[in-house]
Amino acid sequence: MRKLLLLLVLGLCVFNAAQSLKICAFNVQSFGEAKSHNKKVMSILLKILSRCDLCLIQEVRDSKGKAIQSLVNSLNRYDKSNSYLYLQSERLGRKTYKEQYVYIYRDNVLKLKDQYQYPKLEGDGTNETNVFSREPFIVRFHSPTTLIKDLVLIGQHTCPKNAMKEIDELYTVFKGIHKKWKTENVMILGDLNAACNYVTLKGWRSVRLRGDPRFQWLIGDDQDTTVREKTHCAYDRIIVHGPEMISSTVPGSAQPFNFKENFHLTEEEALEVSDHFPVEVELKRNHRYLLRHEL
Rank of each mutant, 00 (worst) to 15 (best):
G190R: 12
L192I: 07
A194P: 00
A195Q: 04
A195W: 03
C196F: 04
N197W: 02
L201R: 09
W204I: 15
W204A: 14
R205E: 14
S206I: 04
V207D: 08
G211L: 00
D212R: 00
D212F: 00
D212S: 09
P213Q: 08
L218S: 03
G220Y: 01
G220V: 05
D222R: 08
Q223I: 06
T225I: 10
T225M: 02
T225F: 05
T225P: 12
T226G: 08
T226R: 14
K230I: 11
T231S: 12
H232I: 02
H232N: 05
D236A: 02
D236H: 01
R237F: 06
I239H: 02
V240W: 00
E244M: 07
M245N: 11
I246D: 05
S247F: 05
T249W: 03
V250R: 13
S253I: 10
Q255E: 09
F257M: 03
F259I: 09
N262T: 08
F263N: 09
F263R: 11
F263S: 14
H264P: 13
H264W: 02
E267R: 15
E268L: 13
E268C: 00
A270I: 04
L271Y: 02
L271M: 14
S274H: 07
S274C: 10
S274M: 10
E280I: 04
E282P: 03
R285G: 03
